[in-house]
């Protein structure tokens, strides 16, 4: 929460945003030590469509930069779209793809339309959690067409330093290293302007690797037998 304690960040968010929070995950207390815990920030339109997101904790400068970026892109999108919602969505997805290329050196073709969802979310075969709510799907980001040649060596070096599970795969099956913010842009190049309830699973579970649950804290005793009465 250090970024939100910063005065500049606070002033900017107060000026352009109305903020709230939701508890969607848990962390474990094993013995007396805290394990895990995470945060994701979503910048949305008032109808819940996600313009941009930040996965994981960031410093004040990053938070401010990303908030400013989304406000600027929203203004540009309004100018470009001229009251056309489809054009506005396409603008935001292109903006994410451009930022992914500029800052992370990967090229994706933004998905500027949403195909019809063939899944029947109300069907008897649809899995639901015990609360009756459908689980948030982990959405597939658009395929990577190719890395920017300028950053190829850096990406290859970074890829070698990471486990295979942390890599994103391109069309050829090669793994490329992307940090959390790069993976957010990768996702939003295909799903920006989607509803937050459809996207948060892809961010919280798909990118951050956290489990979505409504339980705030899970207490685990590593020595469950300790303190139990000894039977003779």
């Amino acid at each position: 929460m250090n970024a939100l304690a910063d005065e500049k960040v606070g002033n900017y968010l107060e000026k352009y945003f109305v903020s709230s929070f939701q508890r969607v995950g848990t962390f474990r207390i094993v013995g007396k030590a805290k394990q895990g815990g995470n945060v994701a920030t979503y910048f949305c339109a008032p109808d819940g469509r996600v313009l941009h997101a930040i996965a994981g904790p960031v410093n004040a400068a990053t938070m401010l930069r990303e908030a400013q970026w989304v406000v600027e892109q929203a203004k540009k999108g309004i100018e470009v779209a001229k009251n056309d919602g489809g054009s506005f969505k396409a603008h935001m997805r292109k903006a994410h793809a451009d930022k992914l290329r500029a800052e992370h050196g990967l090229v994706v073709e933004p998905v500027t339309f949403d195909p019809v969802d063939p899944k029947d979310n109300d069907g008897a075969l649809t899995y639901r959690d015990p609360t009756g709510r459908a689980l948030a799907p982990i959405l597939p980001p658009p395929p990577i067409d190719g890395p920017d040649v300028k950053l190829r060596l850096q990406l290859e070096n970074a890829a070698r330093a990471l486990p295979a599970s942390a890599l994103v795969r391109d069309r050829g099956g090669r793994g490329w290293a992307l940090n959390n913010q790069g993976r957010v842009h990768h996702l939003l190049a295909g799903h920006s302007m989607g509803q937050i309830e459809k996207l948060y699973g892809a961010v919280f579970e798909g990118i951050l690797g956290e489990r979505i649950t409504t339980r705030p804290v899970e207490v685990v005793d590593p020595f469950p037998g300790r303190g139990r009465a000894v039977r003779n």
């Binding site: 945003f17 903020s19 508890r23 995950g25 995470n38 910048f43 008032p46 948060y200």
Partner: peptide, 10 residues
């Protein structure tokens, strides 16, 4: 304005 939503653990 726009909306800023934090999703947190814990």
């Amino acid at each position: 304005k726009l909306v800023c939503v934090l999703h947190v653990s814990g």
